[in-house]
Every structure is written in structure tokens, then in C-alpha cells.
Lab assay of single mutants.
Amino acid sequence: MQIFVKGLTGKTTTLEVEPSDTIENVKAKIQDKTGLPPDQQRLIFAGKQLEDGRTLSDYNIQKESTLHIVWR
């Protein structure tokens, strides 16, 4: 499925993911596209910070959802 990651600059990155992907895995995909290391990424969805060990489905993140990224 496709999801979007929007940064503070307003730039949006598209990712191809599975609902079973962990947040850690998603951060690795973001690094592949942007070069930003996972330890500098904070992902937010529906006002919650996403924890590395959880999956996208744990947070009810579905296709075409938009996550927000904040740099540490």
C-alpha cells in the first residue's frame, strides 16, 4: 500500500509499505529516500508519536494515510 510522509518543509515523500511493517522498517525506507537516519526521525500520526516496535496496523494506518515527520 502507499502512504505519504510529510515533513516540516511541506515536502511529501511517498512510500510503498505493508500494514505489517514495523515503524522501524518504515524509518529505514524513509532513510533510503531522504538520507535522514532513523535515529533522527520522529513519526507522528493522529497526534501520536509512533514507536519503533509497533506496526502500521497497530496504529490503524491505512493506504494513503499521511504521517508527519519531525527531525530530532
Rank of each mutant, 00 (worst) to 15 (best):
I30P: 00
R54C: 07
K6D: 05
T22N: 04
D21S: 07
K48E: 12
I44R: 06
L36K: 05
P38G: 09
L56R: 01
T66L: 10
W71V: 13
Q49D: 14
L15Q: 01
V70C: 07
D52C: 04
G7I: 10
S20Q: 09
L50Y: 01
N60R: 06
E18K: 13
E64L: 12
G7H: 12
L43R: 00
I30F: 08
V70Q: 11
R54Q: 08
A46L: 12
G7E: 11
F4P: 01
A28F: 13
S65F: 08
V26G: 00
V17L: 04
L67R: 00
P19T: 07
R42S: 11
K48G: 05
E16A: 08
I23P: 02
E16Q: 11
W71R: 12
L43I: 08
Q31W: 15
Q40G: 10
T55G: 02
T12A: 07
W71A: 12
V26Q: 00
G53I: 06
I23Y: 01
Q40S: 11
V5M: 04
N60W: 04
Q41F: 15
E24H: 12
T14I: 14
G47H: 05
H68V: 11
P19S: 08
I3V: 06
T22D: 03
N60A: 07
E16D: 12
K63R: 12
D39R: 12
P37D: 08
Q31M: 11
N60S: 08
T9E: 11
S57I: 08
G47I: 02
P19A: 08
V26E: 00
E51K: 08
D52V: 05
T34H: 07
K48W: 07
L15H: 03
M1G: 02
P37E: 07
S20L: 09
I44E: 09
N60C: 05
Q49S: 10
I3G: 01
T34D: 03
Q40L: 11
T12F: 11
Q41K: 06
L15R: 00
K11I: 13
I30A: 02
N60D: 09
S57R: 12
V70H: 10
H68T: 12
S57P: 02
R72C: 10
K29E: 02
L43Q: 00
G53K: 11
E51T: 06
T13F: 15
S65G: 05
V26F: 02
L67V: 09
K29P: 00
L15K: 00
T9Y: 15
P37M: 07
T12W: 10
I30H: 02
K27F: 03
K48D: 05
D52K: 04
E64C: 09
V26K: 00
V5D: 01
S65K: 03
Q49C: 10
G53D: 11
L43H: 01
V17R: 00
G7M: 13
G7D: 15
L56S: 00
L50F: 01
K48Q: 14
G53Q: 10
T22Y: 07
E64S: 10
G7R: 06
R72W: 13
G53W: 13
I30K: 00
